[in-house]
Simulated scan of single mutants.
Amino acid sequence: MKRIGIVAKRNRPEALEALKELAHWLDSRGLEVFVEEGVARVTGLRGLNPEGFRKEVDLIVVLGGDGTMLAAARMVAGAPVPILGVNLGGLGFLTVIPRDELYPAMERVLRGNFEVERRMTLKAVLTSPEPKEYTVLNDVVINKGALARMITLRAEVDGQYLTTFRADGLIISTPTGSTAYCLAAGGPIVHPSLPAIIIVPICPHTLTNRPLLVPEGSKIGVTLSSEGEEVYLTLDGQVGLRLPQEAKVEITKAPGEVLLVKSPFRAYFELLRTKLRWGGDLPAPRGGEGEPCS
């Protein structure tokens, strides 16, 4: 590896500090360092446009949280560029390397001693009024606006009628996204290697509308049947637009994958246990025997 791209939020001092430190570390080892054009104007480092990140770097290091990782993943989806996520944010299911493990992990990666996971992405096509296409790593969400009213969504799978959801919205997720909004809405945790797409209604009126897994090759069609409601299409929680009446969204597996560098220090299930605090010790009771806990 000779050319390293770094992605970080330019409005986060902690991320810029980590970026400059990493850039100096890489430069001292004779490697070329590139950042996004907006960050280049702030730091004085060499900038690259999104196409340059797709074609001209050997590795991308993301400094931030899962939101920064999602933006980077969409930028290079389908390109054979591995992404190493370093967690400077909160929960971080995608940014699996803590800050204090950054340089030990980088040493391994630069020696070629690393593995990647191939994460599937979804393609969402808004078919009307004019076709628009989007790629996501986590999820496609159709949800209502500010008013507390349910919306009506007609769903099909491979051209076969599934059901009409009366709900606050609908999530169509990859296995990678199963630990994001999907999980908060009551969806299952799905191992990222499983070839499946997850459909999760958000607060459905019919309580028997449960999360559903379909094969990764499925074509999911969702038509907005509500009239006069504000309804939005949100992509990875970062890109959004208002849907016109009777809009139809078609979701399929995208042709490109995202290559995520696996943590060299812990496996997937250890990450789950750590992030979700599974199996931790119960706190000791505050009161003594026979005393109230206040």
Rank of each mutant, 00 (worst) to 15 (best):
I197S: 06
P201Q: 05
P201A: 05
C203E: 10
C203D: 08
H205V: 07
H205I: 09
T206L: 15
L207Y: 12
N209W: 11
N209H: 15
N209F: 10
R210A: 07
R210W: 04
R210V: 07
L212V: 07
L213W: 00
L213G: 08
P215D: 12
E216S: 13
E216M: 13
E216K: 09
E216H: 10
G217I: 02
S218V: 00
K219Q: 13
G221A: 13
V222Y: 12
V222P: 00
T223H: 08
T223F: 11
L224N: 06
S225E: 12
S225V: 12
S225H: 03
G228A: 12
G228W: 04
E229Q: 08
Y232F: 13
L233G: 00
T234F: 06
T234R: 08
T234G: 10
T234V: 15
T234W: 11
G240N: 11
G240Y: 07
G240K: 14
L243H: 01
P244S: 15
P244L: 15
Q245C: 12
E246M: 00
E246V: 00
E250I: 14
T252M: 03
K253N: 13
A254G: 06
A254I: 02
P255K: 09
G256V: 04
E257I: 00
V258T: 03
L259M: 09
L260R: 01
V261R: 09
S263D: 15
F265G: 12
R266D: 15
R266W: 14
Y268A: 11
Y268K: 06
F269K: 01
E270F: 01
E270H: 08
E270M: 02
L271K: 05
L271T: 07
L271H: 05
L272S: 07
R273Y: 01
T274S: 09
K275V: 12
K275I: 05
R277W: 02
R277V: 11
R277D: 02
R277C: 06
W278L: 15
G279P: 04
D281P: 04
D281S: 12
D281N: 09
P283M: 13
P283I: 11
A284F: 02
A284M: 10
P285C: 12
